[in-house]
Design a protein around this nucleic acid. Structure first.
Lengths: 138, 138
DNA sequence: TCAATAAATGCACTTCCATTGCATTGGTTT
DNA sequence: AAACCAATGCAATGGAAGTGCATTTATTGA
């Protein structure tokens, strides 16, 4: 666990028990999670704390928001290869209509999108919906 | 206005004053609108009516939902060239970070997106964010 | 035309998620 | 140990989405 502590420290975040737990939770999950997911996993903790922890993580570029179109914001750890601040490095997200899970397809970059004259592209969000590998049974 | 009446009729929708007004409102706007936008435009009408009208329009493929990542659902008229039921015909949406407006770039189709083995793509949502032509000043 | 029927509208309420203010706790620093 | 600041917890708010039910309005058909 020393690793996580060092990591948080390197991000200028004070290490607390709660933050370690939440980070661990996110790291174990391979999918983007909602605040409710975290809430269910830590019923002892207050919702606000979780909310603010995630917000802090987001500000420090430890997690990024995932808008998969379900209307509920999800969050996923920024892994190696996830430079979510950099426009040209955005990956896409896949939302499974069956199990309702959303995963980052980090290795799949978003192709260059052309926009009409006068429009300036700063950011791109691309969500593919369908059936994920687990649900399609292969 | 006869045109609109005929159009609604062709979509198997009963023509009412409210529906004509809302349709006209959507047609005049060149951008995707939220329920609140419509609400503000028709303060005399009940929100539920507007909500259900839009829902009806959506079911009859008169409007389509636009999820531009603001967290608030927007709606835009399906124009010629908008076959929003057909997967391969999806256009992309542009959200302006300055004026907060979202427009359909109907003529810009979403490129084919490759997903990993085992994943089945059914639907794609692509939102480009940045500065729109009006705000970029050209 | 008038009754019967169905759809559209309006009102009240609920739920869910996101967010904030304020008090309190706990850890750091000097 | 005192002072300070960040983290946590509690309570409450706000906004959007959605639902149930009563009422009005329009359509149908006897």
């Amino acid at each position: 666990m020393q690793k996580i502590e060092q990591f948080l420290d390197s991000k200028d975040i004070r290490v607390t028990a709660m933050r370690l737990l939440i980070y661990k939770f996110l790291a174990e999950k391979q999918v983007a999670v909602t605040l409710s997911d975290i809430e269910n996993a830590f019923e002892k903790a207050d919702r606000t704390t979780l909310y603010r922890t995630i917000k802090t993580f987001e500000e420090k570029a430890i997690v990024h928001k995932v808008d998969d179109g379900t209307g509920i914001t999800k969050y996923a750890l920024c892994e190696q290869g996830c430079n979510c601040e950099i426009e040209t490095d955005l990956h896409l997200h896949f939302h499974c209509n069956n199990c309702n899970e959303t995963v980052c397809l980090t290795e799949h970059k978003i192709p260059q999108i052309k926009v009409p004259d006068g429009f300036v592209s700063e950011n791109v969000n691309l969500v593919v919906k369908g059936i994920c590998d687990k649900c399609s049974g292969q």
